[in-house]
Design a protein around this nucleic acid. Structure first.
Lengths: 345, 345
DNA sequence: CTGAAAGCGCTTACAG
DNA sequence: CTGAAAGCGCTTACAG
């Protein structure tokens, strides 16, 4: 509302040079006399000149913009991952454009179009299933993988994580009737965690009758966890322990157990894949896999930077982050502190 | 990585018209013959044409981009508020560019420059103190206010909220020695909540010796709450109840109380301004003010849209959101459900 | 070292 | 209804 933004033409006029010279002076081009550069810089500063990035992008063919597509930026996991990406990318001179899809494939496609329209140099995306071919700019997929597509695919070690969870419940606590409370096997985490559960149970020769697997509605919300958990509690023979595929689902499950008059972990043990931000404050304190979404974000961003710099047409690589178990109370352990068991992918 | 993006010139050539006609056909300009429009649209679709928004912005003088500046996008409050803004803004055809400042004034200034360089049409910002004059585009401040600056300033009813909290503790529970655990009075919420505490205590003729006010380090983190809380617990005469200025601070305070071997609320009552996302799962369940950051975001965004549409040079208005008390256990109440008391600004 | 000129991909008066 | 042309704010060969 204050003053209108001056263009480089006005700065040049003020400094008494042509706009070409002004541009060179400001951009650090070597072929500019020192006093000329000083004069231009002084004018620019005094006039509050800010180069128009759209014009620059248009002309130079490089927008220095990176698109980030996530299901929900307000969700801690994506929020923190996005911020970590932004840190890495800004250090390299890029700005990010974040798009929310609300887990809707159509919105994801629209977001992609929109980013491309903004001429982004690259894309970082946690897909919700809206992409069928690699975008026209370098892309790194994270969280939800598109094997073979993109420069890199980075995610947590889902199967190994579930194995650590089932292992702690079965091998350490000797539970046998262990249920799985998950999300529909639509995206990577839903698919791999469910598979991981079957594998982990099979490896230990534990039976998996179909009723021990309940799936929420795909929103990964506490509410959906509560309702799926109810099915488990109404079983003729309820489980002794439950592996929840996420922190939100676990919270919903605890709520359902509580509503049913069950004490956790005395009557029922519950462990979860993701560690909620306030995991230590939850009652009972949750035994869960720590997650390092910041590291995930950093790795994904660095991969994209790599693609942007070297533009190498290498085959898509897959990177997995190790998981780490934080043992608290909800599994039935008494240790007040938290022991860590790392699972490498 | 697939195909290069076609420009409107190529689409026009494909459809056998001039680029001007192609542009009009695509933009819905009425003066285009129907079959011509159809032909152009068909070419565009087939070629996967996506109009370059930078070029469009540069030419039309309108970027349809809104800048959002927040201290921390990974924080639930800002994450959810930002998403709500995005919803409102996208419906109106705008895209948002989000910048994190990490609560650093210099980063805030840099973010502002960067947004202006992107030629944003307007700005929505939760300042951390880096702005001294109104930006050159319509701006709405939220959460942290800049009275008199911007088209609108929207925030929660901080003073009234603290009054409701102190009121519940003093009037209902009869506590007299009520402490305040807050953040430094640097930004709006820190200042107003501290003032609100003093006013609320004064109104009830309750003494406020200086040692009853402890301030954290400005990060609003649980850790900083824990350490400030320790000072309170080491007092010769510790408080009977504590009003925490935020959920994170309250969580840190509970941790400190627990470490000190105190039971909440039996030995010490704790209530908090903001309601943590998992408030019902915390032990003890937290009595706190609900916050509707989504509504706050929506209101702020609508105000900006208003400024953009009418461009009215009206004096800056201040909008306050009502707060609502959710009574749970940490205050000393036994009611398992949650009663609500609304406080209008 | 500096200026004049072309051009990035569009939109939009201006003629016809 | 359509085409030719100007121009948004820059960068960058090309001359001098």
């Amino acid at each position: 509302m204050t003053k209108a933004k001056p263009t480089i033409v006005e700065v040049a006029a003020d400094a008494g040079v042509s706009l070409g010279t002004a541009s060179r002076a400001l951009s650090g081009h070597p072929a500019v006399r020192d006093d000329t550069r000083k004069r231009v810089q002084a004018s620019a500063r005094r006039m509050g000149y800010v180069p128009n990035r759209m014009a620059r992008s248009l002309r130079s063919g490089s927008s220095m913009l990176i698109g980030v597509i996530v299901p929900d930026i307000a969700h801690g996991f994506y929020g923190r991952a996005t911020k970590a990406m932004q840190d890495v990318l800004e250090d390299a001179g890029y700005q990010i454009l974040v798009m929310n899809t609300e887990r809707q494939p159509e919105r994801e496609r629209a977001a992609l179009q929109s980013l491309l329209a903004h001429d982004v140099a690259g894309i970082l995306m946690a897909s919700s299933g809206g992409v069928s071919e690699a975008p026209s700019v370098p892309t790194v997929f994270f969280d939800s993988l598109e094997p073979g597509l993109g420069y890199a695919n980075v995610a947590q070690a889902n199967k190994e994580g579930i194995d650590v969870l089932v292992g702690h419940l079965a091998d350490f606590h000797d539970y046998r009737r262990i249920a799985y409370l998950g999300a529909p096997p639509a995206l990577t985490s839903g698919i791999e965690r469910l598979e991981g559960y079957r594998d982990a149970m099979g490896r230990r020769a534990l039976p998996v009758p179909p009723e021990l697997i309940v799936l929420s509605d795909g929103t990964w919300s506490p509410e959906s966890g509560t309702s799926a958990m109810r099915d488990l509690l109404e079983l003729a023979e309820p489980p002794e322990a439950v592996v929840a595929a996420s922190d939100t689902l676990a919270l919903g499950a605890i709520q359902a157990a509580r509503d049913h008059g069950l004490r956790v972990p005395d009557d029922l043990a519950i462990v979860s894949f993701d560690d909620p931000f306030f995991g230590a404050f939850i009652e009972p304190q949750l035994t869960a896999l720590m997650r390092d979404e910041r590291e995930l974000g950093r790795i994904a961003a660095r991969q994209l930077l790599d693609a942007l710099r070297h533009g190498a047409q290498r085959p898509s690589v897959e990177i997995r982050l190790p998981v780490e178990l934080t043992i608290r109370r909800s599994c039935g352990c008494n240790s007040p502190g938290s022991t860590r068991i790392a699972a490498q992918a």
